[in-house]
Amino acid sequence: MSIVVAYSADRYGEAAVEHAADLARKEHTRLVVVNATLGSSLVDSRFAHDADIAALRDRLVAEGLDVVVRHDVVDDVADAVIAAADEEQATLIVVGIRHRTPVGKLLLGSVAQRIILGAHCPVLAVKPTG
């Protein structure tokens, strides 16, 4: 039993993590933070720095949560999140979603959308406030 959150190092990911942490605290389940990258470019701003992800984990642990962090280079981010959910027997996946123009969707695709379509458990989509 666990909650899996797809984390990206931006305000969308922050919103998702905060929401997932709240839920995990209420339901007393384990929280699995997945931060993955394709590693296809020299810099991926959504892939958290080692120090930052450690700080995030420490903060969540200090709040009394049972936290697992998966910080990996993978072949496909959406697949990695779904695989994590399957392995951890997740009851819920939390993703942060962002606004995209139609052209942007066509060119870039959407990790969140692919998680929603491919997941074997309910998916909660979260938007940052404001």
Binding site: T37, L42, D44, F47, H49, V73
Partner: peptide, 8 residues
């Protein structure tokens, strides 16, 4: 090819 992104 370097696989892991560098920290900018």
């Amino acid at each position: 090819l370097r696989r892991k992104p560098l920290e900018i």
